[in-house]
Amino acid sequence: MSPLLDIRGLSKRHPPRGFGRGAGVLALDDISLTVEAGSIHGLVGESGSGKSTLARIVMGFDRPDSGTVLLGGVDVQSASGEALTKVRRQMQMVFQDPGGSLDPRQRIWKTVAEPMGLLEPRLARLQRREKVDALLASVGLQPADGDRFPHEFSGGQRQRIAIARALSTNASLIIADEPTSALDLIVQAQVLNLLMDLQETRGLAILFISHDLAVVAALADTVSILHRGRIVETGRTGEVFARPQSAVTAALLEQDAVSLASTDQLKEKIHYPR
């Protein structure tokens, strides 16, 4: 079976700063990775390793210099019209900072309903609202919350709202770019819990981008380690973390030994269904 998301040979060079001398920074260097339907793939790397650049290209917000992104066999970069709508419907993103990813002047229900235009452009207001209420309930919020504004919610609640928005098109793939790094530990566990529940019940695939090995170890089925724009190692999470093949992975694990020890604590907070 072909993978849901298939990234092939992706390269991206950021333009040089200042007066255009030099070749710029190679943000992504020949990246290839796949995400199977219904599975969680962790993408790990320290800051500056190109994680967010990759997310932006996969979502089609930026163009790569070379390489292709296939979602369900459709090329994301060259898709247009009906095909693009279908791609966007299938793939939604959860951003790092829920403070910045929700429009402060828009009521929550409108934010959550925003991607529904991809599904049924002429859906009546009342029907949209009904769908939003169901989505809010599925992420643990009240239907009445839909009439409130983002600043009335806590960070964890805001991230739940962002997740509800990402779910509103019944997407089969969620790109989550450090969705919990702006949250404190307990809230972090709650949001991760929610993501895992949704993955189970809806058969979602998640490309989970993080710098936190503990979180990835607890969550992901497979993992890729990104270092300076290159993937240095990829494989099943347990195997990679138990027997790292690359020096970079080993160094990351060593660095994060303290944090990995807390994986067990995190796993206790996450109910960890498998």
Binding site: T85, R88, M93, S101
Partner: peptide
Amino acid sequence: LAARGAGK
């Protein structure tokens, strides 16, 4: 970005 992802 979210709005762009929503096809606006």
